[in-house]
């Protein structure tokens, strides 16, 4: 059983997820400190970072004390020495769509955060190069948001001839 590292910020809510992995629900203020504490605790690698848009699931089951927001940034950390994973889920409201970057703890999150920004519009403060990565740089909107209509938006291609 994994527990929170000793120097983790106080008051981080955890839950035993559906499967073995420990899930932590830090607030945005605790988020980066918690990740840094895990990193010091032997979690050498950040394997995955992605965002989820819970537009129609504001009432999803969350541990008591966690207020569900529209966006959630999900981080999967891996400890090679202890062979365990831990999942960190941080809530990001739509009105203030900012969360700290993990670039300084794990430089490998650079591309993943760019992807989350590109597809969901979640901004990572302090990220060194927060530009679009998969979509063209002049694309409008963030296509993996749930309110981004599919099939209704005309395909935008740079310098494409207009409708004939």
């Amino acid at each position: 059983m994994i527990t929170l590292p000793a120097n983790a910020p106080a008051g981080v809510i955890t839950s035993e997820g559906l499967n073995v992995d420990l899930a932590c629900f830090p607030t945005r203020a605790q988020y980066r400190d918690l990740v840094a504490a895990f990193r010091a605790d032997g979690f050498e690698m950040c394997v995955d970072l992605c965002a989820v848009d819970y537009l129609s699931h504001a009432d999803r089951p969350l541990p008591t004390g966690v207020v569900g927001e529209r966006f959630e940034v999900v981080v999967n950390l891996l400890s090679l020495s202890r062979r365990v994973r831990v999942r960190i889920r941080v809530q990001v409201p739509e009105s203030d769509c900012f969360v700290d970057t993990l670039f300084h703890e794990y430089p490998g999150t650079e591309a993943m955060e760019r992807e989350a920004f590109d597809l969901f519009g979640v901004q990572f403060t302090d990220h060194p190069d927060l530009t679009r990565i998969l979509m063209p740089e002049d694309w409008e909107g963030h296509p993996l948001r749930k309110d981004y209509g599919i099939g209704r938006v005309p395909v935008q291609f740079k310098e494409a001839p207009g409708p004939r």
Binding site: V47, D48, C50, V52, P107, G108, A111, M112
Partner: peptide, 14 residues
């Protein structure tokens, strides 16, 4: 509701 694939090539490209 959401499916995300952690692609090794995507990260390795860095």
């Amino acid at each position: 509701y959401r499916i995300h694939v952690r692609a090794p090539s995507f990260v390795n490209l860095q």
